[in-house]
Each structure stands twice: as structure tokens, then as C-alpha cells.
């Protein structure tokens, strides 16, 4: 009996993550995908066909004939969507690179700090999360606007005489994304660097590498898993980011998150916004799956 119970518990432990994925990723995704195949209509919910169980299986099959790929065709016909995808990916890529550039030295410094200091440094990295994300983004408006804190400071110390226009430009979006997502870059890199054996660096130096070369030949390659994890954690949400471009970006900023929001709320076109979301998911998931395949292959070859 006890054996059976323990077997059940160990099963359950495996089931939990799968159940989580099923309920909070796969099922919602299928709902979104299903809506993307529907047509918009003035009703509640605002799309057709709508299934009800009263018609039985035959009724459901009959209604499934109402599905079409029209919305996806529509996305290819209006260049707006293509431009929004491209500009989102570009903005996310640049932001990810900037975050990496700033985050890596921070993570490196933390990993090299005295052991007693590290918990405090970790706290400092996580600390901003204790304030609402929205409030922090609004605070950037106060800093970046023409009469904001940054311009006041720069004018006071005499670096500029005209206020810089940063707010409502792409620069403001970069600042916002880098600021908001920095911890997601720092933490995985820190964890990769922190567990690295320092004697590896000494071995590299012993074999003739000056410190900078030792970094590029040993430290950086060994921190790559952290760099990749951090980059994905920044890139993926940044592509679909809505709040930051909406609050800090200008009217000319085109990002897919904003497009999606417009379709959904302004146009009340649930099917098209669902199609936008589905394509966005494919854009994000396919390259990651591809890279992971390559990585597994490379690792298997080593055996």
C-alpha cells in the first residue's frame, strides 16, 4: 500500500509540470488558434462560429466548416503587420544585445565579489521588482521627458543647452526594456559564472593566457548557457512588449504588441488579433526549437 502511494506520488511529481503546461499553455493556445480561424461578427463573443454542445458531434463538425485561414491571408495582405513583426524583432534584438552588454559585467562583478557580499548584491538586483512594473515605467516618463530630471541635470551641469528629445522615441523604448529586463539577464549569467571553478582561469593563465584571453577562451564559453538563457528571457517578452512602447514610445513606433492591442480593443477584431498572436508564437518558438535541436546534436556527437 505504502509502495503504491509512493509510486503515485512520484508520478504526480512528473505530472504537475505537464498538467501546468496543458492547462496554462496548450489549452489557451488552442482557444486562441481556434478563434484565429473564425470570422468577426457583431455579437458576444464577437466571432463565429461558436460551438455549443446542444448540437452534438454532428453539429460541431458542421460548424467547423465555418473555419478558414482568411485572417492569416489578411495578415499577408496588409504590410502593416509585416512591418510590425520586423520592427518588434529588431527592437527586441537590439534591446537584448544592450541588456547583455550591460548585464554581463554586472553578473561578472557579482560572481567575483567576496562570498559574503553576494547575497546582498543579489537582493539589490531583485529589489526593483518590489515596486509595480507600471509605476517604474511611468517613473521613466518623469525622467526622460523634455523638462524631466535627466534634461534638468544635463542642462545644470552645462553639458547641453537644449533639452534632449528622448521620450516618445525608440531610444526611450530601449531604455525602458533594458531597465525592466536587466535582472532576467543578470541572474542566469551570474548563476553560470558563480559555479565556475576559479582554478580554470588559473589553469588558462598557467598555460600562457593573459587575463583577457583567458576570459574569452574559458570564462565566456563556460557562461554561454547563462547568456543564452538570459537572452531568451529578455528577447521573448521584449518582442511582444506592449506597456513600454505604449508609454515610452512615440506614435511612429510600430510594435506587434501594440498592433495586437489595437486589433483587440479598438477594432474588436478577435480573430485577426488571435492570428497575430499565433504567428508571433511561431516566430518565437520555431527558432528556439531549431537551436535546441542543433545543441542536442552537437552534444551527442561529443559522446
Amino acid at each position: 500500500m505504502a509502495k503504491l502511494a509512493s509510486a503515485l506520488v512520484s508520478r504526480l511529481v512528473i505530472i504537475i509540470p505537464y498538467a501546468w503546461l496543458l492547462f496554462f499553455f496548450l489549452i489557451p493556445f488552442f482557444i486562441v488558434f481556434r478563434i484565429s480561424l473564425s470570422q468577426t461578427t457583431v455579437a458576444m463573443p464577437p466571432y463565429t462560429p461558436v460551438f455549443d454542445l446542444a448540437g452534438g458531434l454532428a453539429g460541431i463538425l458542421d460548424k467547423m466548416r465555418g473555419f478558414s485561414m482568411d485572417n492569416y491571408v489578411w495578415l499577408t495582405e496588409d504590410v502593416l503587420y509585416f512591418n510590425a513583426y520586423v520592427s518588434s524583432v529588431i527592437i527586441a534584438t537590439v534591446s537584448t544585445l544592450l541588456t547583455l552588454l550591460i548585464g554581463y559585467p554586472i553578473a561578472y562583478g557579482m560572481a567575483r565579489a567576496p562570498r559574503s557580499l553576494r547575497p546582498m548584491l543579489l537582493m539589490l538586483v531583485i529589489l526593483p521588482f518590489w515596486t509595480s512594473f507600471l509605476i517604474r515605467v511611468y517613473a521613466w516618463i518623469a525622467i526622460l521627458k523634455p523638462e524631466g530630471l535627466l534634461n534638468q541635470l544635463l542642462i545644470t551641469i552645462g553639458l547641453i543647452d537644449q533639452p534632449l528629445i528622448i521620450l516618445n522615441t525608440n531610444s526611450a523604448i530601449y531604455i525602458g526594456i533594458v531597465y525592466s529586463y536587466l535582472p532576467f539577464m543578470v541572474l542566469p549569467i551570474y548563476s553560470a559564472l558563480e559555479k565556475m571553478d576559479h582554478s580554470l582561469i588559473e589553469a588558462a593563465q598557467d598555460l600562457g593566457c593573459p587575463p583577457v584571453v583567458a576570459f574569452w577562451r574559458v570564462t565566456f564559453p563556460l557562461s554561454l548557457p547563462g547568456v543564452i538563457a538570459g537572452s531568451l528571457l529578455v528577447f521573448i517578452p521584449a518582442v511582444g512588449e506592449f506597456v513600454i512602447p505604449d508609454l515610452l514610445g512615440g506614435s511612429e513606433t510600430l510594435m506587434i504588441g501594440k498592433t495586437l492591442w489595437n486589433e483587440f480593443n479598438a477594432n474588436r477584431d478577435w480573430p485577426v488579433s488571435s492570428a497575430v498572436a499565433t504567428i508571433l508564437l511561431l516566430i518565437l518558438v520555431l527558432p528556439i526549437v531549431y537551436f535546441q535541436n542543433i545543441q542536442t546534436k552537437a552534444e551527442n556527437e561529443g559522446r
Binding site: 571553478d197 588559473e202 593563465q205 598557467d206 593573459p210
Partner: peptide, 15 residues
Amino acid sequence: PPYRRPVNMMFQSYA
């Protein structure tokens, strides 16, 4: 510096 010395070391952890 270590990288210019004509000695090499075998580390305890092998490194």
C-alpha cells in the same frame, strides 16, 4: 605574471 613563467602546474582539481 603566471602566463610568462616557464613553469606549468598540474592542479589538484585538475582544472
